[in-house]
């Protein structure tokens, strides 16, 4: 029997082209497996082989979503594969979005099974979980050894057209599709068992988790901008030169509050970025490229806005847990309210 043909999509880092400084590279196709593809090959055994690997810069893909999707789609088409795999992307946001986007496109346009893998908090997971199968992985590449066998196993099932079990059995992020099966115990028995566990304070797993729709209604608009105090908040990691609070370059454990009274312009001598998730050169050259202090100060002088708030608040949004971001923002919001700030400009890199 001939092997199933697989095309694999990976980013510039796993393609061994380089780190953030190479995140701008457009997609390129290589023959055979590259990087994590070698591990996939081992797990596929005689069943499947990676015939081509597409390596693409994370920034390039995300900044050119339509062009990138089209380009990669054409590369996949040329190989007429039986299966398409992307990642795993772990908790790398741009990589996760790229994997989800391209899997969705390949599945829809070429009608072949697709699979990717990422950490549950990767923004790509929320965006694509109901569209493509995403194997749940650890948050960093340290989880590669577990992710690859899980993905390879599910991938082979997909390409062979075998029945896919429930998310808890197969290890994918719940996609909202119910997979029926006959349980040995009937519903009333299972429900009572759960209830008894609950009463005893033991852990139990619901069979029907309630969906969470976490949306915040929009606040009313500012009616008179010339009287409004505007504050700057950023996940782009802008800090005074030297990073006095030692905000981490990824998985930030804190945020900083920095006074900008009398500061008209951020310069390479005075400010820099602590962000480790993209090329920091441009922000280090001129931090106004991430937080527009220069323009807002000018507008304050011209009277276009009432006031630029004396402080800006900054953390690094690179693999930082959602729970941490929520906590920092709640604290920042309290400060903003105590200073009577009317509106916030929040920038992300």
């Amino acid at each position: 029997m001939s092997k199933f043909k697989v095309v694999h999509y990976i980013n510039q880092f796993f393609g061994q082209v380089g780190g953030e400084e190479m995140a701008h590279i457009p997609a390129e196709k290589r023959e055979g497996p590259v990087g994590p593809g070698l591990a996939f090959t081992k797990n596929f055994g005689d069943d499947a082989e990676i015939v081509a690997t597409i390596v693409c810069g994370d920034s390039w893909f995300n900044e050119n979503l339509e062009l990138a999707t089209e380009t990669v789609l054409d590369m996949v088409k040329e190989e007429s594969p039986d299966l398409f795999i992307a990642g795993p992307a772990f908790n790398a946001g741009r990589y996760g979005v790229a994997c989800g986007t391209i899997c969705d496109a390949v599945q829809t346009e070429l009608g072949i099974p697709v699979l990717t893998g990422m950490y549950v908090e990767n923004p790509g997971a929320d965006m694509f979980r109901t569209k493509v199968l995403i194997v749940s992985t650890a948050d960093s590449a340290a989880g590669m050894r577990r992710a690859v066998p899980a993905m390879a196993k599910l991938a082979l099932k997909l390409v062979k057209g075998e029945r896919i079990g429930a998310s808890v059995e197969e290890g994918y992020i719940p996609d909202g599709v119910r997979r029926n099966f006959f349980d040995k115990k009937r519903g009333s028995t299972r429900a009572l068992e759960m209830l008894l566990k609950k009463i005893a304070g033991e852990p139990f797993e619901t069979e029907y988790p309630m969906p969470t729709f976490d949306r915040v209604p929009p606040m009313p608009a500012i009616t008179d901008m010339t009287k409004a105090t505007i504050a700057i908040v950023t996940s782009g990691g802008i800090v005074p030169k030297g990073n006095p609070d030692r905000i981490e370059s990824s998985s930030a454990s804190k945020y900083g509050s920095y006074n900008i009274e009398g500061v008209d312009d951020l310069t390479s001598e005075t400010y820099e970025t602590a962000h480790g998730g993209h090329d920091p050169v441009y922000a280090n050259e001129d931090a106004d490229r991430v937080i527009p202090v220069d323009v807002l100060r000018q507008y304050e002088k011209e009277g276009k806005i009432g006031k630029l708030h004396d402080w800006f608040y900054s953390t690094v949004g690179n693999g930082t847990a959602v729970a941490s971001s929520k906590k920092y923002a709640a604290e920042i919001a309290e400060k903003l309210i105590s200073y009577d700030v009317d509106a916030v400009v929040l920038t992300s890199t």
Partner: peptide
């Protein structure tokens, strides 16, 4: 972060 600040009552762009 956008949501938490807006939740507290401040409009965010």
């Amino acid at each position: 972060m956008v949501k938490e600040i807006e939740r507290a009552g401040i409009p965010v762009v």
